Simulated scan of single mutants.
Amino acid sequence: MSFESIEVCVYGAEVLCPSCVNLPSSRETYDWLQAAISRKYPEQPFTITYVDIHSPEGDQEKLQFAERVIEEDMFYPVVVIKGEVVGEGNPRLKTIYAELEKYGYQPK
């Protein structure tokens, strides 16, 4: 079975979100998610992108969403898959896995 590679976007900042003081940083969450998704769905293509909300890089969609995170005071890191926010502040693996499985990913 073949399917398209999904991009998982993690929006965050080097500085911890004020409400997230005891949580991992956005960058740590990005690293953790990359490892967890790779383990759960080996040999299934995905990309994971980190976007710094204070100096975003990427396409227009990423720039606009980074702005939205700041404007709406969202808890970061914010995890987005295909335009859907699937995690905010302290993202849950179960929710992210469920979203990936909607697109055909098979856990191993």
Rank of each mutant, 00 (worst) to 15 (best):
58 G>L: 06
92 R>Q: 13
4 E>N: 14
31 D>K: 07
51 V>G: 00
69 V>D: 02
63 L>C: 11
50 Y>C: 03
62 K>R: 12
81 I>E: 04
102 K>R: 12
19 S>I: 14
81 I>C: 08
96 I>Q: 02
22 N>D: 15
107 P>K: 11
34 Q>T: 08
38 S>L: 10
62 K>A: 15
42 P>Y: 05
46 F>Y: 10
48 I>D: 00
104 G>S: 09
69 V>K: 00
30 Y>R: 01
17 C>Y: 13
34 Q>E: 13
18 P>V: 14
92 R>H: 15
40 K>E: 10
82 K>A: 11
38 S>W: 05
52 D>K: 00
41 Y>G: 05
91 P>F: 02
98 A>E: 08
52 D>H: 01
27 R>G: 03
34 Q>Y: 15
88 E>S: 15
38 S>R: 05
98 A>P: 00
33 L>M: 10
80 V>G: 08
73 D>S: 14
24 P>M: 15
89 G>H: 12
37 I>V: 11
53 I>K: 00
67 E>L: 04
15 V>F: 07
24 P>G: 12
20 C>N: 15
99 E>M: 08
41 Y>E: 05
15 V>G: 08
48 I>W: 01
30 Y>F: 14
85 V>M: 13
61 E>P: 01
84 E>H: 11
22 N>L: 15
39 R>M: 06
59 D>M: 10
92 R>V: 13
98 A>T: 08
107 P>H: 04
50 Y>W: 13
68 R>C: 01
32 W>Y: 13
95 T>E: 08
94 K>V: 05
35 A>F: 01
68 R>D: 12
30 Y>M: 02
82 K>D: 12
